[in-house]
Design a protein around this nucleic acid. Structure first.
Lengths: 218, 218
DNA sequence: CGCGTTCGTTAGAAGTTATAACTCGACGAA
DNA sequence: TTCGTCGAGTTATAACTTCTAACGAACGCG
């Protein structure tokens, strides 16, 4: 992180402008969504005119890619901080929800509707598996239950994505359901699909979490 | 459906052009996503120039709204056909996955990342609750299990969204988890988040479904 | 047969991303 | 200190987009 430490004053200025651009981009994304991000508007806000931004980012796609990377990095760091403070599965779930609610568009930037043409850079998948590793660690601490399912038998032969993590198939399964179930509730909530339905999404989230952790605190 | 039956030849022509516009829009959405939908490109494909489309749709938003409505209508009709052929919860789940995989962008148009400014028209929420009613019917046929959870106690007092459906809170809960869990797997699969992980998403979907229906066919 | 409604056109305004060419300032070396 | 180079920001321009306005022409109804 600190290896990029301000050689020349020019590079320092350049880095500062780049982070200001990113900051304005985040503000704009939070209010109008990623699809409405306008380089022109950012430039105007910063007091300089359109094409100046191309000195700092090759184009709209490159800026968005940087924001995606930053979002992944933020989630991974948040997870790491939580798990270093001893967060278990429930703690990670709570952390995830907090992180998502803090900036829904940032969540959607990672887990939302993909743009057909766009391909995420390679390093994001590295961060993604870093996140998955922490989920796996937390899930490994849960008590085992039930006989092996068909899907777990399948996972025993397809565990490349675990990146060498020494978890039994049941734990792999639990990590995947942790991901998909919490994402299911969270994404629908953030998309506003529950508005007007009357119930409290937090309680549905808690119910799913309770089911994941063994259903004792239901 | 047939009440809009061709009064004057002009209206017939008008309706035909409208459906052709929608058809081209669907093709374009399927390949490039909803955000890349271009009225100009549609007009050019149809051999007429830009502003002509404004005779048929008030603008981009109005066209997309129509597509959203059509997507909802398609899902509801597909569900209705399945449930009239005696589909149970597993049948509905299978139907949902088939429908989503047939055109992922259509699924995302309904359940994907929302555009902050945009508000869905009222009739879509009507279709949405029509869909939910069928899920509730299917879930009511499942055997009951376990004691009442905290969330189900909460649902007992917040059941307006069920629109008068006479289902006990446990069934309401099951219908919601049917929705959120299947959406969790499905949306991540369609977004390509599982690509490169090696396992078969269909088996994860099946595992979630098995857990929903009582876990006997696991 | 005429006349009005409606369709499709071109022209244009106000946006967008992105490239090219130019000016000017700052920084480092002789 | 002077000079040369590099880079930041500028304007101009191209190629897009949505969308409005005004015009011509064709179609169909009375």
């Amino acid at each position: 992180m600190v290896n990029q430490e301000a050689k020349t004053p020019r590079e320092r200025y350049r880095a500062q402008v780049r982070t200001e651009i990113k900051q304005r981009a985040w503000e704009q994304i939070a209010t109008a969504g990623a699809s409405a991000l306008s380089l022109n508007a950012i430039a105007k806000q910063m007091g300089m005119s359109g094409p100046a931004l191309y000195r700092y980012y090759g184009g709209r796609d490159e800026l968005i890619t940087e924001l995606v990377r930053e979002a992944y990095r933020s989630l991974a760091d948040t997870f790491r901080a939580a798990s270093q403070e001893g967060a278990d599965v429930a703690g990670l779930a709570h952390t995830l929800r907090e992180w998502a609610l803090r900036d829904p568009q940032r969540y959607f930037l990672i887990y939302g509707t993909p743009v057909p043409g766009y391909h995420a850079p390679d390093d994001t998948t590295a961060i993604s598996s870093e996140i998955m590793a922490m989920i796996l660690d937390a899930c490994a601490a849960l008590p085992a239950d039930g006989p092996e399912t068909r899907f777990e038998a399948h996972l025993a032969g397809h565990r490349d994505w675990a990146a060498g993590h020494p978890a039994p198939p049941a734990v792999l399964h639990r990590a995947l359901t942790f991901w998909t179930r919490l994402h299911g509730v969270l994404s629908l909530e953030l998309a506003g699909q529950f508005t007007g339905m009357g119930f409290d999404p937090a309680l549905l989230y808690a119910a799913e979490l309770a089911d994941l952790t063994g259903a004792s605190t239901n």
